[in-house]
Amino acid sequence: MQEKIKLIENEAIQAINNAQSIPSLDEARVRFLGKNSEFMSLLKSLGDLSVEMRPQAGAQLNSVKNKLENALRDKKIILLQHEQQKKISAEKIDITLPGKGIRRGTIHPITQVMDEAKAIFGRLGFEIAEGPDIELEYYNFDGLNIPAHHPSRDMWSTFFIKDDVLLRTHTSPVQVRVMEKRKPPLAIIAPGRVYRRDYDATHSPVFYQLEGFLVDKNITFGDLKGTLTEFLRQIFGKEKKVRFRPSFFPFTEPSAEVDVECVLCQGKGCRLCKDTGWLEILGSGMIDPNVFKGVSYDPEMYSGFAFGMGIERIAMLKYGIDSIHLFYENDLRFLEQF
């Protein structure tokens, strides 16, 4: 009996070791520990043994049973791991294939630059106001100290609708509209479309402007310089030099053109800046007392500054775009670069 048990044990261990898969391991288990296995019949036949032999044989059978069960369990773990490995290798994918889902669209570069400008002025405390594209001559010209038949009106080539209605040539009418309704202190920016009868590589009959103005007691030309310098450094980079040079606008006095160090040559002089080292970015000035009088503000009590800039021009300089018309052509190969 003892030898028989030993023989079964050896045979079983060998079968377990040789099992290459879960089914063949199962087969081994059924063969050696199953209901109809030789081992089980030995176990059942314990009762036939003599009382003296029974304990020893019982202990031996139990020990072998435990041994085989442990071996089966261990082997099963190994085989399971092995199978998982196999499954994992089989499930390998090409992780470089493209992702899925809806491709995100793009925000137009004009909108991006406008949003950036709005955000900077927002941080400086300016709020947004808007006005109509189709505007009264009064708000576009007269209210801004640009009388009829004055040569300064020729600074803007205007689209007319009829009579005293026109397409606004700048966003400055919003200044007058807001000041007519509200009292200082005011810090306002007015973004929007403007229209001029111009067409070449840098001029489009439709373009975007951002107007801004700030009115309170004791606002100085120094404040104008400080505010616009801060804005331009945030847009073009902290290291950029900014300069203010005298200019003329009917609605500001003194008026200043604001230049930024050339973005291409860093001020050394190149084709972009026409060898001057500077790029003209925006027009500005202290609001003319005549504009204040038109909205019944006392110019002795209040002062303020105003400024206006072309958004396409800033976008062109920021991104190195050489034709304004690319913005309005909306070629996807252009739009998707931003």
């Binding site: 405390g125 300016f126 309170d216 606002i219 030309f221 120094g222 300069r243």
Partner: peptide, 14 residues
């Protein structure tokens, strides 16, 4: 113009 110091508006503009 460049000799006039740049300042920030003294009033608060929330």
């Amino acid at each position: 113009f460049n000799r006039i110091p740049a300042t920030m508006p003294s009033a608060a503009f929330p």
